[in-house]
């Protein structure tokens, strides 16, 4: 059971009956987009011994410095997860009201049909959402026009990142399956960071406007990219 998206702060799969939990520690656990890490967690001693044998034999262990960085990240996991969630919910509602957005997917939206299942498994909803825009061209322009939010893979860091699953995270998934899952060229994924929410909505709004052609010719007036 891969628990990367919610982190143990919002969901503990072992307590729900899973035998093995997997994490990309690069994401919420590390939390700062500055370290790569992964985890397995088990409750059964025999299973643990088997995994430890594989671990010491294959050698993909985490370095001392990266262990320290991940530990330091975890110190603020609770605070970060609360803020990620607060921003994600606000942004999901904002996107839902946007004329260029046709659908928003966020497990924290109160009217989701699977809300009962969600609430029986986790104590919070995290900071990951995705949304569908009106055309592939709009998706492509948004990726180019965001300034504060960065167009990058990965998730779970304090910085907001916009991803294009069709060409990035799900590029390896067969086309027929991607279509069935709705992972097409109008879908964007947003890892909502812990910035001020108004800066995030303003950045998205200016990107939508630029995508619609309203921002053309104003290049000289554009504010320099605040995220460097």
């Amino acid at each position: 059971m891969d628990n990367t998206f919610l982190s143990p702060y919002f969901q503990q799969p072992l307590a729900l009956g899973a035998d093995i939990v997997i994490h990309s520690g690069t994401k919420y656990l590390g939390g700062h987009n500055d370290v790569l890490a992964g985890f397995t967690v088990v409750k059964d001693r025999e299973l643990s011994e088997k995994l430890k044998l594989i671990y010491k034999t294959t050698g993909a262990c985490l370095s001392p410095m990266d262990s320290f960085l991940t530990l330091r990240g975890i110190k603020t996991l609770a605070l970060r997860m609360e803020r990620h969630q607060e921003n994600a919910l606000e942004l999901a509602l904002w996107l839902r009201n946007h004329s260029r957005v046709s659908e928003v997917y966020y497990i924290g939206l109160p009217d989701r049909p699977d809300k009962t299942v969600i609430d029986s498994q986790c104590s919070g909803y995290g900071g990951m959402l995705s949304f569908r825009v009106d055309s592939p061209a709009t998706a492509e322009r948004l990726l180019k026009e965001v300034k504060l939010i960065r167009f990058a893979e990965s998730l779970g860091g304090v910085e907001s990142l916009l991803t294009y699953p069709y060409r990035q995270t799900h590029a390896e998934v067969p086309e027929e399956l991607r279509r069935r899952l709705g992972v097409d060229d109008t879908l964007l994924r947003l890892s909502v960071g812990i910035e001020n929410i108004r800066d995030l909505t303003e950045d998205l709004e200016q990107a939508f406007q630029a995508a619609a052609g309203q921002g053309k010719g104003n290049a000289d007036e554009m504010v320099p990219c605040a995220a460097g």
Binding site: N3, T4, P8, Y9, Q12, P13, L14, A15, V21, I22, H23, S24, G25, T26, K27, L36, A37, G38, F39, T40, V41, V42, K43, D44, R45, S48, L51, K52, Y55, A60, C61, L62, S63, D66, S67, T70, I74, L77
Partner: peptide, 16 residues
Amino acid sequence: LEKGTEALAFSTGMAA
């Protein structure tokens, strides 16, 4: 945090 008995820290998520 995961209410487990033992965790292993790998160099990446894919290694895990």
